[in-house]
Amino acid sequence: MLFLLNSWLSSFSNYGLCIATAATLHYFLLASFTWMGLEAVHMYFALVKVFNIYVPSYILKFCAAGWGIPLVIVSLVLVIDKDAYGSAGPIETAGMLKSTDQFCWLQNDVFFYVTVVAFVLLILLCNISVFVVVLIQIRHMKTNKRSTSSPNSLQDLRAVASLTVLLGLTWSMGFFSFGPGKVAMMYLFSIFNTLQGFFVFLFHCLMKENVRKQWKIHLCCGRFRHSDYSDWSHSVTMSGKKNHLVNTDSIASDETSTNRKVSDSSTGSAPNHHQRA
């Protein structure tokens, strides 16, 4: 929303407002990529480093990293040179795409390439590495299962697509927006990344049977509500309270198991005995 309102806020020609807008937009962009990187770390723990992995205050540490690292970077930019943020004038790209609107953003090329380009490139390289490792691990799990059923190429393709979206690998298209195909890559970049949230919802919520079941339990009413609503919800609630009283850090284990189930559902072949206790 801040990105969409940026040009309007810039039209006020208010120095402080423009710096605040640019810094906040910078923060949210870095936070988005930081959380994509943390998702890769979480997936690595869940599918590769399954055994003997216990991180105290798992969710709390992830939240501190996900929101704290971008805050440190933006704060350093403001301390070193707050004038690095400002309003950009009319720009023209590719000789045909022209913008006459002002835009509050980083004006210093050094800060831009260090805190945006280098940071994004580092996250994407790490996520690509985890993506390859996870696919190899899933492949090994399928081989070890020795299922008699024929391989489902559609499920494999869906798994690859869901992981690509979840890890934000579609953002890498921005680094290939040059040469004769620049305009086409810019369109693909805009389409895939503006719909990233929708694709995450599609692959990891709408297409998951267990998630749809939760919707029926908690959101639906009448004949659409799940038939086991009362008994199931009561047992889950009581179990959740007991687990919480025993150890609040069990959230990490629950998250890992949930992520495991999601990945198993995507591939349709991951064995259950690898889940953490």
Rank of each mutant, 00 (worst) to 15 (best):
Y54I: 09
V120M: 08
F51W: 07
G222W: 09
K49H: 13
V50R: 13
D254G: 08
V211P: 05
S227L: 09
G197I: 03
I138W: 00
M1P: 11
L169A: 05
M96K: 10
T267N: 00
G181R: 13
L5W: 13
Q196N: 12
G16H: 07
I251P: 00
R158L: 15
S87T: 15
R276D: 04
V120K: 04
V55T: 14
M173N: 10
M1G: 11
S147M: 06
H274T: 02
Y15D: 11
L167H: 06
T100H: 11
I191E: 10
A46C: 08
Q275G: 00
L29H: 15
H218G: 02
G37L: 08
S230I: 13
V110C: 08
V116C: 04
Y15H: 10
F3R: 12
V200I: 15
L154Y: 15
L188H: 00
A23H: 11
Q155E: 12
W67I: 05
G240L: 10
D249A: 05
I19R: 02
L154N: 14
L167I: 13
V79S: 09
T170L: 01
L38K: 05
N108M: 11
I136Y: 15
T24F: 08
S99T: 15
N210V: 06
G168D: 10
R139N: 15
A252Y: 00
S250R: 03
L163D: 04
C221M: 14
H218S: 09
S75D: 07
T100Q: 12
N152M: 03
K261C: 09
V130T: 12
F51R: 08
